[in-house]
Amino acid sequence: MHVEEGEVFGFLGPNGAGKTTTVRMLACLVSRSSGTATIGGYEISNRADQQKIRKMIGLLTENVGLYEELSAYDNLDFYGRYYKMGERNRRERIQYLLEMLGLWDRRDARAGTFSKGMKQKLAIARALIHDPQVLFLDEPTANLDPEASKTIRDFILELKKENRTIFLNTHLLDEAERICDRVAILKTRVITIGSPQDLRRSLSGRKVKIQLQRVDDSMVESVRKLGHRIEDVTGNSFVVDLKEPEKENPAILRALQGAGGDVVFVTEAGSSLEDVYLKLMREV
């Protein structure tokens, strides 16, 4: 398994699949039982390399683990010290991160008084305090309300623009689908790896859902004559199996118009990542 630089890589699996343990191993917190792993060319089980790895990674743990008695600013400041950052560098970085996450106005408030979402943001800021190249996020939106989850997701996408490599542990398939370039699905071992799009297609091929103002048999037949399989006709829409929608869609639309159909929407349909995930979980 290889994660590219600047990639957002999702690690999906049920509870107990080994997601957190894997991240702990990669963060050099626990020893590996077998196999090898390198981060930036450094081997995770080599003692000398472990220090280098710790300097280049940021870790958002499953439990935020903030110093609840300390202010948001102090929480970040002490972590800046742990990474041997100079005072000015710390000050600037803390301001940048807290402003980015909308917490600058609350910098002097005790972390213990923060909401769950704010604590999670602060923990992400802590993981980023030393500007790491690689970021491990263990369930970053677990137990957050939809608004806080969206803020965190948007922030992860911002980080992606900075060409940071992000390793995201999650069991939220929708989140993985929105954020990740590629995902690995695991259940104590990795079952499959690929982009969410490729995994969806691997399960059911590509499909297009066409909605018309009115559907009749001649319209459906006009599409069948092109050699396509109509999968499902529901109300005024139907789903067509296609190999390359980008090339095949124009001909389909022309055929439908020729049969008197007024097309309202054309959208790519097909299996969701959830379908893929559930199928794989059943099979293993």
Binding site: A27, L29, Y82
Partner: peptide, 14 residues
């Protein structure tokens, strides 16, 4: 109890 040891252990401190 606060689970604050794990993030600290992930820093370069020995």
């Amino acid at each position: 109890m606060q689970k604050s040891l794990e993030p600290m252990l992930a820093t370069p401190m020995s």
